[in-house]
Amino acid sequence: DESNKPILLPNESQSFERSVQLLDQIPSYDTHKIAVLYVGEGQSNSELAILSNEHGSYRYTEFLTGLGRLIELKDCQPDKVYLGGLDVCGEDGQFTYCWHDDIMQAVFHIATLMPTKDVDKHRCDKKRHLGNDFVSIVYNDSGEDFKLGTIKGQFNFVHVIVTPLDYECNLVSLQCRKDMEGLVDTSVAKIVSDRNLPFVARQMALHANMASQVHHSRSNPTDIYPSKWIARLRHIKRLRQRICEEAAYSNPSLPLVHPPSHSKAPAQTPAEPTPGYEVGQRKRLISSVEDFTE
């Protein structure tokens, strides 16, 4: 099969070098950035008060330690540790928490760990991170309901609301924008112990962030949302095809390698009803078989 044979790379090609550099910018793992907010007593309706908090309760602090690993920003190499735009020179604080497994990295933009500057009256330095995160974990210690939209931002799609209760338990629920209701189930609340709260809140936030990324990708319907490693695979396959075309153009005697095509017509299947918005969006999480067989 010609399409699977190794090909020689061009010795000097600026377009090839640019493509390789672009490939280096696509990590081999999925990345997520999640905002974390603490809401104190009497702050449920005040964005400024929430963003001005420099610490929270003892249970909130224990919750943070379970979310991930504490890292010092100045020691991080952005090409190895995903920071979601946090500055490593102290502009966004000294520490944050991050978490990773074999296929993804997540960083938490924690408002109480970011510096509260006197010259920044409206807390814009914090909002440029927190307001651009799709998902926020809100530790609501106010005793009042927290409403979506209290923290203004164009991309605040989903809130994971943590409400501490007695007996070391917590109520965990989801809020989302109306255009996200087909992807996020907000109907079920959970009672979770303090011990298990970081794991549950983190998983709910990661799932909500993946759904938000799919939702946000609708602005470019021709580019369905893939995982990062599938995006790398697609980029490599496009690069291979372009090299083959350039080689055939410079030397017409060489065969032009095309991806294999299936001449056999697909079997006719009964027509199915058109899937609704929710089903269609969830299918976009699934990769096409052509990603692996071309």
Rank of each mutant, 00 (worst) to 15 (best):
T61L: 08
L73E: 14
H129Y: 14
P78I: 13
E2L: 12
F155A: 11
R242V: 15
L37G: 01
L254M: 11
Y58H: 06
T186I: 06
Q14W: 06
V279C: 13
Y97V: 12
K147I: 07
I50H: 02
Q154I: 13
R240V: 12
H159Q: 15
H109W: 03
D141Q: 02
I243G: 08
D101R: 01
E41V: 06
H258T: 14
I110F: 03
P27R: 05
S44R: 03
K121C: 11
I151Y: 04
S263D: 13
T31I: 08
T96S: 07
V160C: 02
N11M: 11
T222A: 09
L9G: 08
Q175D: 08
S193E: 02
V36A: 01
I50V: 05
I191G: 01
S44P: 03
Y139F: 03
W229M: 07
C89S: 13
T65P: 02
R69W: 06
E245V: 08
I26P: 07
V158A: 09
M204G: 01
L37E: 01
A265T: 12
A35D: 02
F108V: 01
S217G: 05
G85C: 05
V188K: 06
D185M: 03
Y29I: 15
R202I: 03
P6M: 06
V107E: 14
L83T: 09
K152S: 14
H55C: 12
D79W: 04
S187W: 02
Q43N: 02
V135T: 03
I71K: 08
N53K: 02
L239D: 12
G153H: 07
Y277I: 11
E168I: 01
C176P: 02
F146M: 04
I191Y: 07
I137A: 00
F199M: 04
H258S: 14
P10L: 13
H215G: 03
N251G: 06
P78A: 12
D24S: 04
V184I: 07
S28R: 09
K264Y: 12
L165S: 02
S28N: 13
V20C: 11
Y277G: 15
Y225R: 09
G149E: 14
D79Y: 03
K5Q: 14
Y60L: 00
T222S: 11
R238L: 12
L73S: 15
G153I: 03
V88M: 12
I230N: 12
A35V: 02
S15D: 15
D30F: 05
E181N: 06
T293W: 04
H122C: 14
D223R: 07
T163M: 04
I34N: 01
E181R: 04
C98P: 03
V81H: 13
R232T: 08
G90C: 07
C124K: 15
S173E: 14
R177G: 10
C169D: 13
I34P: 01
G149K: 05
S136K: 04
S15K: 07
L48S: 10
Y139T: 00
D92P: 08
F134Q: 02
R18A: 11
A49I: 02
Y167I: 02
M204T: 05
P260Q: 13
K117Y: 14
D118P: 12
L113T: 03
L48E: 13
Y38W: 00
R282P: 13
C124E: 15
L83S: 15
Q154V: 13
Q14V: 12
K264G: 14
P226K: 07
V162H: 00
R284I: 10
V160Q: 00
R284N: 15
S136A: 12
I230D: 13
E2T: 08
D166M: 04
S261H: 11
P270R: 09
E47S: 02
L48V: 12
E54F: 03
G90V: 08
C176H: 03
A265K: 13
Q25L: 06
G93L: 13
T274R: 10
L9S: 12
F108Y: 04
L8D: 13
K178T: 13
S253D: 15
M204K: 01
V119Y: 12
E278V: 08
W229H: 12
H215D: 02
S136C: 11
I230W: 07
K264M: 09
A189S: 10
L206D: 01
F16V: 14
N209E: 03
N156R: 02
Q94W: 08
L285T: 13
E294S: 10
P27F: 03
V107Y: 14
A106Y: 05
T163C: 06
Q77K: 11
R284Q: 13
I224W: 06
N140V: 00
S253M: 15
T116I: 09
Q241L: 06
Q43Y: 02
H216G: 04
S19Q: 15
L130F: 06
V257K: 14
K283R: 12
L73M: 09
R18V: 05
V36C: 02
M210K: 01
H55T: 09
L9V: 13
T269H: 10
R232A: 08
I161E: 03
K80V: 05
A267C: 12
A111E: 03
D179P: 04
V158R: 00
P10Q: 13
S217F: 11
D166G: 03
D102N: 06
Q281M: 09
E272T: 09
E245I: 08
S212I: 08
K127E: 06
C98M: 09
S193P: 01
G182K: 07
H216C: 06
L239C: 07
Q77C: 14
T65R: 15
G42C: 03
G182R: 12
W99T: 02
G93F: 07
V135H: 00
S15W: 14
Y249E: 07
D179W: 04
N4G: 14
D92Q: 13
D179N: 09
T96M: 09
Y225H: 14
N45W: 02
F146G: 00
R202L: 03
Q203S: 05
T222I: 06
L22N: 08
L197W: 00
K190T: 12
Y225A: 11
L148K: 11
E144Y: 04
K5R: 10
P252D: 12
S28P: 09
G131E: 15
I7K: 05
T269Q: 13
Q105K: 11
R218F: 07
E12V: 08
R232F: 05
E144P: 01
A35S: 07
F199D: 02
I230Q: 09
I26L: 12
S52A: 14
A267I: 11
R195T: 10
Y60G: 00
V158Q: 01
D185F: 02
Y249P: 06
D120L: 09
Y60Q: 00
G84W: 05
K5H: 13
T31Q: 15
E17R: 12
G40N: 03
N53R: 01
N4Y: 11
G42T: 03
S250P: 14
G68T: 05
Y139M: 00
A267K: 07
R202P: 01
P259N: 13
T61D: 07
Q25E: 15
V138T: 03
V172S: 00
T116D: 06
G68W: 04
Y139H: 00
H100W: 12
V135K: 00
C244T: 13
C169A: 06
V160M: 01
I34M: 02
S13Y: 07
V279E: 14
D101M: 01
T61F: 14
S263N: 14
L130S: 05
A189W: 14
